[in-house]
Amino acid sequence: MFKIIKYSFYDLMRSRWSYVYFAFYFALGFVLLFLNNDINKAVITLMNIIIVLTPLIGTIFGVMYYYNSKEFTELLLAQPIKRNRIFLGQYLGVSFSLALSLVLGLGVPFVIYGLFNSPAIFDFVLLLITGTFLNFIFVALAFNIALSNENRIKGFGYAILMWLFLAVVYDGLFLISLVIFNEYPLDKISLFATMFNPIDLSRILIILKLDISALLGYTGAVFQQFFGTLLGMIISFVVLSFWVILPVGRIALKANKKDF
């Protein structure tokens, strides 16, 4: 399995896309810091980008990689290697290379601009951790979709739709339900609802750490009590891990049964 991870990883490294992705974050980090010159503010702006972009790129990369390396996968399947290992190896290879681009691309400019002397370091690290989680989650979801759809166009369509749903539509439905059920106590429900969307979960995790919490008033107090404590932190990361483990589990299961 390690060999396959290594292979996928180097394959992506050679394919230039990783470099483009890395260069994008690298430039973004520098431009943000150049315009703001304040790490604190840059972290807030960065959050907006990471929350939207990391899942999108993870999704597209995941789907694209699966379809592109399909022939090679079929070749590998003819070898005496466990199916699980092939697919999980590919998944981990893609995820690691994307995560590496993200962490290095953003990390280097921030370190150069004196991150280690800034109090924003914890916020920034949290940002990178959630970004990495989102990466792993969305690549896994994308692999799932690709495994279930032989048709490339369909697969791409579903993947983009999934991203659109989680990044935009879910929040819309959430907002509408909050407005409609205005009269009811909604704080527990909304806390619960955020757990079902990894993008929302990471967004709230970050904005509460970025001290916007006081804005949230009473609802904020409930959220702060939950996410602000160590237990809440642990629970949210456990939920995020579930968001990784469940799709990956399904990849393994699906890969074993699939007819090639």
Binding site: N48, D171, N182, D187, R203, I207, L215
Partner: peptide, 19 residues
Amino acid sequence: IVNNTPETLILLRSLFVDI
């Protein structure tokens, strides 16, 4: 919206809200 339904504030900085 936040004025009418304060709970919606948890959607702050969401892409949907920007739209």
